[in-house]
């Protein structure tokens, strides 16, 4: 992937040399041309066409934002109940993710889902211990969204 970015920059600079005009406009035009050429020869590259992983990362970031918005509203509703009837508790969640980065991302995402904060990660990275705000509901919501998160994270971190 860094190689592809370098090739793209090289094509942009070559474009500026050929046009003999040194401005940001020419540079952007050359960059777009380079992107198009890389798109044409993408099959002969050893790694994926490089905007695609970036798009996946942006997709993951959007999931983060959406979860934060949802959970903020849910927590605000729970706080503003006239009488607090919460049943908090700690439950265990198993995960199939292996690498450190993946588990970290999953823990951050789960912390952002409605009504759950990750308390502890077991040393072998297999179990997450999660504190739920309102237990049966948050257990269900975490279990439901876990598969979706794991798939999105895998798409970013693995080829």
């Amino acid at each position: 992937m860094p190689g592809q970015v370098l090739v793209n920059l090289f094509i942009a600079i070559l474009w500026m040399l050929l046009q003999d005009s040194w401005s940001w406009l020419t540079f952007s035009a050359g960059y777009l041309v380079g992107l198009f050429i890389l798109f044409l020869v993408r099959r002969y590259m050893d790694s994926e066409f490089y905007p695609i992983p970036i798009l996946k990362i942006i997709d993951l970031l959007l999931v983060f934002l959406q979860e934060l918005l949802m959970s903020g509203i849910v927590v605000a509703k729970q706080i503003l109940q006239p009488r607090l009837n919460l049943t908090p508790g700690i439950f265990m969640l198993e995960t199939d993710l292996e690498h450190d980065v993946e588990v970290t991302l999953l823990a951050m995402l789960i912390t952002l889902t409605p009504g759950s904060v990750v308390l502890e990660i077991s040393p072998d990275h297999k179990c997450l211990y999660i504190h739920g705000m309102d237990l049966p509901e948050s257990f269900d919501s975490v279990n439901k969204s876990k598969l979706r998160f794991e798939e999105k994270i895998r798409r970013v971190t693995r080829k």
Binding site: L68, L69, S71, G72, V75, A76, Q78, I79, L80, L84, L86, P88, T111, L112, G115, V117, L119, H131, M133
Partner: peptide, 28 residues
């Protein structure tokens, strides 16, 4: 949102539930 999470910081019963308020509503 900040104000709601501050209310939560006073109303909620223990540290772990208050962490929900201070990590989500306050961040938002």
């Amino acid at each position: 949102f900040s104000f709601i999470s501050a209310i939560g910081l006073i109303r909620l019963p223990d540290l772990y539930t208050r962490a929900h308020a201070s990590s989500k509503s306050a961040t938002l």
